Structures are given as structure tokens and as C-alpha cells.
Simulated scan of single mutants.
Amino acid sequence: MRYWLFKSEPDAWSWDQQMAKGDLGEEWSGVRNYQARNFMREMVLGDLGFFYHSQSDKAVVGIVSVTATVHPDSTSDDPAWECVDLKAVQAMPRPVTLAAIKAQPDLADMALVKSPRLSVQPVSADQWAIIFKMGGL
């Protein structure tokens, strides 16, 4: 199993909307960055990810699971764009802010810190464990 982080602006797609989809989940569509798309190509069923609210909140607010591997993105006619499907697993008891992540020396190499604009990014097992604990899990 691998770990990931998925960023979304809460006014475009929020954690509450993701939760409301239940076990059906939702396509992680609209990604138009080749590196982010390539990361989705690496995902397998059951991989876990942090759901991160960008813009206003700037915090990890939940955990999602990959429920469908890479397939054509239904929001594009260009076959170059693909996506995965995600379902909500659980909310973070305590959202983990970007400021708190940046304050942790062990997270200095995290993609969220080094490549903050990338909407889909890998998370190492060690980084996952640290943020998981910071979030109260």
C-alpha cells in the first residue's frame, strides 16, 4: 500500500461533499498536471490518501481510499487526462494545518512543503504516520 495527498479547494469540492458520496465515492477529476496524473497512474485499489483543503483552510481534514484505478477523466475529451475514484474513509479528529506540518522538522521533505502547488502527491509511510498522529488518530 502507498500513501498520497489529494488537494481540493473547499468551494470547488469539499470534504463534506466527499463524505456525502459514501461508499460510491467520486472521480478525482479535473487534474490537469502531468506529474499529478502520473502519480494517479501509480495508484492501486486500497491505497490511502489525505484529503487536503487548500486555499482558505490549508489543512488535512480527512482520509480517502482509492476505489477505482486510473481511467479516463469524464470532465475531458482529451484522452491524456485520467483520474482515479476515491471514497471517504474518516475525518481527521483534529485538522492538521499546513503551518503545523511546516513546523515539524521530520516533514521538511514532504511534497506538500516542497511542491505546494501539486494537487496529487505522494506521502511516505513515515510522513503518513506523523500526520496521522497529529490529527488525533
Rank of each mutant, 00 (worst) to 15 (best):
V84G: 01
Y3P: 00
L98I: 12
D16P: 13
H53T: 04
D106Y: 02
E82H: 08
I101W: 02
Y34L: 11
Q127I: 05
G30Y: 15
E42C: 06
V66W: 01
H71Y: 03
D57A: 03
W13D: 01
Q55R: 05
V123W: 13
W81C: 06
M110W: 12
T97A: 01
C83V: 09
V84D: 03
S14L: 12
I130C: 10
D23R: 15
G135E: 04
F51L: 00
D47T: 00
F51S: 02
D109S: 08
L107Q: 09
D126A: 10
Q127S: 07
S56I: 05
H71G: 07
D106H: 05
V89P: 02
E42I: 03
Q17R: 14
L107M: 10
M40H: 03
R32F: 09
E26D: 13
R32T: 11
D106S: 07
P116I: 11
V84A: 04
D106L: 07
L98S: 05
Q90P: 08
F39D: 02
S54V: 03
W15P: 02
P93N: 06
V66T: 03
P72D: 04
Q35G: 15
Q127F: 01
F39Q: 06
F51V: 03
P105V: 08
M134T: 09
S14Q: 13
F132A: 10
D57V: 01
F39E: 06
E42K: 11
I101S: 05
S65A: 07
D23S: 15
D85M: 13
Q127G: 01
Y3H: 06
F50G: 01
A108I: 04
G49V: 00
V120I: 11
E26H: 14
D16E: 15
D78Q: 12
H71M: 09
A103H: 04
A80Q: 13
Q18W: 09
S124D: 13
S29P: 10
D16N: 15
M1Q: 04
D78V: 15
I101E: 02
E9R: 13
R94V: 12
V89E: 09
P116W: 10
E82L: 08
H71N: 02
A125T: 12
A99S: 08
G25T: 14
V120G: 07
D57H: 04
L112V: 07
G62F: 04
L24M: 13
A125N: 06
G25M: 13
E27A: 14
Q35Y: 15
E26S: 15
W128C: 08
E82D: 07
D11A: 14
P10T: 13
R37P: 02
K102C: 11
K21H: 14
D126K: 04
R2C: 05
V31L: 12
M110E: 09
P79E: 14
L45T: 01
K58L: 07
G49S: 02
D57T: 03
V31M: 09
V31G: 05
K102T: 11
I131S: 04
D16K: 15
Y3A: 00
F132W: 10
V64R: 00
R32M: 11
M92H: 08
D23K: 15
P10R: 14
Y52Q: 04
F50W: 01
L86H: 13
V113F: 08
A68H: 07
E9A: 12
Q35E: 15
H71L: 04
S14F: 12
H53I: 02
F51Q: 02
